[in-house]
């Protein structure tokens, strides 16, 4: 009893020094906090020519102290959509909001079922979901659906070892919406033949919209004991995003790699996670990634070396024309 009383008194002693914020569910307070956090952290105001103060003046009048959570969520989501950013998201227990327009600007250009049923032989799946097999004699195929999770490079090694001796390799990152650079970078290293600079990044580091660190150069070089340095075709579509675009950026530097398909999604903002007073979570991109010649890919994406779209006729015939073109181009390199 004495111990409990003592413990409670010790907890109470902390309150004057570290106080609990009040009015946590106040819609106005939460809206202001969201706007202020983005004002302080978001990295693309200058690049995208966004007048964030004007958006506050537009949306703040719609927020009232007594409005329902769902209504507040809708106003916040609508305001955030003005950033046109696939990395920005807002989450409450009753709803999730993402900006998906980047992915729907073009046809999907991918259906793995078509690949698996029409083109892939000796298909296998690794523990963390990579799908691999052969699309021709001596030409392997690996689909990487995501760069999320832990130690994905182990799966990539497993797939390369499973494919054995190859003369060509197709690496498919269509519909890969990203994950972690801790996966995409070492996996790109499995295909690198030399060390080269592949991107420049700078972090937002202050309250002004143009407060950034100096540019930092990132390089990609050979990594891992299992590697392939023969001809590689990288397949991309609009849903190739975030860490998958970093992967594509890295592979662009390699002379034995060429890309086929559609432009990538255009998102390399490396978001941070945060929370509002009312418990909603959100993500804010905090850096800008550039190609080695300082071109930003945000909202623009990376165009492939060879643009190919899967037409509606192709879909009706269950054809993946992107895969077919990539295979033909690889076989010409033998």
């Amino acid at each position: 009893m004495v111990v409990v009383a003592l413990a409670l008194s010790l907890v109470a002693c902390a309150e004057p020094f570290v106080s609990e914020p009040d009015n946590r569910d106040d819609p106005v307070r939460n809206f202001d906090q969201l706007w202020t956090e983005f004002d302080g952290y978001y990295s693309f105001f200058e690049l995208k020519q966004i007048d964030w103060a004007a958006l506050y003046r537009t949306y703040r009048p719609r927020v009232t102290p007594m409005m329902a959570p769902a209504a507040l969520f809708a106003v916040m989501a609508e305001m955030l959509d003005n950033l046109h950013d696939g990395h920005v998201s807002l989450h409450a227990r009753f709803a999730d909001h993402y900006y998906t327009a980047l992915f729907t600007r073009a046809p999907r250009n991918f259906d793995f079922t078509t690949v698996a049923t029409r083109y892939l032989t000796a298909e296998n799946q690794t523990e963390r979901g990579l799908r691999y097999g052969f699309v021709a004699t001596d030409v392997g195929y690996i689909w990487i659906p995501s760069f999320g999770g832990d130690n994905l490079a182990d799966d990539f090694d497993h797939a390369l070892e499973g494919l054995g001796s190859l003369r060509g390799l197709i690496v498919d990152v269509r519909d890969n919406e990203g994950g972690s650079n801790s996966n995409s970078t070492p996996m790109a290293g499995r295909l690198a033949d030399a060390t080269r600079a592949y991107r420049l990044i700078q972090y937002r580091n202050g309250p002004e919209h143009d407060d950034f660190t100096p540019l930092r150069t990132d390089s990609i070089g050979p990594q891992g004991s299992v590697r392939f340095a023969g001809p590689v075709a990288l397949l991309t579509n609009r849903r190739t995003f975030s860490a998958a675009e970093d992967f594509a950026l890295a592979l662009r530097t390699m002379p034995h790699v060429f890309s086929v398909g559609d432009t990538t999604g255009g998102g390399a903002g490396n978001p941070i996670a945060r929370e509002l007073l009312n418990g909603w979570s959100y993500r804010i991109p905090r850096w800008i990634a550039y190609t080695p010649d300082t071109v930003s890919i945000e909202g623009v994406g990376l165009a492939p070396d060879t643009t190919v779209w899967i037409t509606t006729d192709d879909e009706a015939q269950n054809r993946d024309s992107i895969l077919e073109v990539a295979l033909a181009m690889i076989q010409k390199r033998f």
Partner: peptide, 13 residues
């Protein structure tokens, strides 16, 4: 017993 408010991480205690 640790109590904190770190504005870098969260507005909450």
């Amino acid at each position: 017993y640790r109590a904190q408010r770190d504005d870098l991480a969260s507005p909450l205690r």
